Amino acid sequence: MKFQIPLAPGAVTKFLLRLVTCLALLSFLSQISLYFGPEYPLREYLAKVFNVDAERNLPTFYSFLALVFSSLLLGVIAYAKNLDSDRYKNHWKILSFIFLYLSLDEAGQLHEKFINPMRSLLNATGFLYFTWIVPFGCLVAIFLSSYNKFVFHLPVATRKLFVAACALYIGGAIGIEMIGGYLFSTTGMESLPYLIVATLEESLEMVGIVVFIHGLISYIKTYLGGVSWNIYIPGKNTQVTDHQNIGLPALREAANTNLLR
């Protein structure tokens, strides 16, 4: 018996957006309840589990999985491009490794290790209070300049989705983070303005990744024939030995589908 589960861009995006919305709302409400609400059982535990601005909890686990999924999709595209000896095959490979690093960073909060050394070096306050944005901002600028030609070679619909995803993610991770740093250093993390900004920052990052995933799956579906999970369950009289297979049907045959559907 064989089950095929295709990855439809629209269905995946709707599911992820609903998940992100739930995580953002639960985080904001639990933080408001923690700092401004009455006592109730498990209040501090729930605030910790759902806080998008904290580590090792449900939002962090979701973001880690979303970034790993992005890395896998980029790896699938890189594999197909490598078979065709595509001019930009290495760009896809590097992107896959970048998102793998981002997933590890999300799990271990590696970028935060730069805060104290950079703060001491720059004597930073205000908008640069979270000083990790200085070295990483430089890396982002280098990345964007080096990927300029790659972006413009993409189909128009894919390019728009990638640019939108980049704007949302970087706008949240660096732009809104700067505002959050200023509020953190002036009003503290228990103030309502900081809670709003912190929730907005993390929400933009998560939505940016959802848009990027939508763009990747749409690109695979339209230009590489689609991707699906094929699950084989052998019966008593079958000779199937592969219990699970993940493959790309018709790598070289473009599907007649709308990229944005």
Rank of each mutant, 00 (worst) to 15 (best):
M1N: 07
M1D: 05
Q4S: 14
P6S: 03
L7I: 15
A11M: 12
L26E: 04
F36Q: 05
L42A: 14
E44R: 08
E44S: 14
Y45R: 10
L46M: 14
V49M: 13
N51R: 06
D53Q: 10
A54L: 09
A54Q: 09
T60W: 06
L65A: 13
A66L: 09
L67I: 03
V68T: 11
S70W: 02
L72P: 09
A78Y: 12
A78H: 09
A80E: 12
N82T: 15
R87T: 13
H91C: 03
L95N: 11
S96D: 08
F97Q: 02
L100T: 01
L102R: 05
L102M: 13
L104E: 08
K113I: 02
K113Y: 15
P117G: 04
M118S: 04
S120P: 00
L122G: 00
L122E: 02
N123R: 12
F127C: 01
F136S: 09
G137W: 07
V140D: 05
I142Y: 14
S145D: 06
S146G: 06
N148S: 11
N148V: 07
K149H: 12
F152H: 13
H153S: 15
L154Y: 09
P155G: 03
V156Q: 10
V156M: 11
V156F: 14
V156P: 04
A157N: 11
K160F: 09
L161T: 03
A164M: 05
A164N: 07
A165V: 03
A165W: 06
C166Y: 10
C166A: 13
Y169A: 01
G171W: 01
G172H: 01
A173K: 00
A173F: 06
G175R: 03
Y182H: 08
F184T: 00
L192I: 00
T199V: 06
V207N: 02
G208D: 10
L216K: 03
Y219E: 13
I220D: 06
I220W: 07
I220G: 02
G225D: 08
G225E: 07
G226R: 11
V227A: 08
S228D: 12
I231E: 03
Y232S: 08
Y232R: 11
I233E: 00
G235N: 12
G235W: 13
T238N: 13
T238W: 10
Q239G: 09
Q244W: 14
G247E: 15
G247I: 10
R252D: 13
T257V: 15
L259W: 07
L260W: 11
